[in-house]
Amino acid sequence: MYTVLVVDDAAFMRLAIKNVLEKNEFKVVADAKNGVEAIQKYIEFKPDIVTMDITMPDMSGIDALKKIREYDPNAKIVMVSAMGQERMVKEAILNGAKNFIVKPYKEEHIVQTLRKVAAEN
């Protein structure tokens, strides 16, 4: 069982991701609706994996990614992006994001991605 922090400004997305993950071997231990919250929750819960939306108010997913990686260089963060955000995804990867999924995603894609990222050491 892996613990997950789901970060997204849309409650609908947070729930959708949570539903998919909890049908599998993941436990969503916390969620956050912006980057600032994400950092606090990460420090508090130390999840195995973070799913991170890119565009969020207050602090973007990329800034949050940078901060979290600063705090924990081994943090496993998977970006959740929409089509057309290629540049930002690239930037995220250069800044240590483990991988990414593109909305709209297939359930098995997000599960497979998180599974493989979680298995990495």
Partner: peptide, 17 residues
């Protein structure tokens, strides 16, 4: 890559890294 996974070029870039 999986069908419909999106942004294959960025995926490729990530794989390359």
């Amino acid at each position: 890559f999986e069908d419909g996974c999106g942004m294959e070029n960025i995926r490729a870039y990530a794989a390359l890294l």
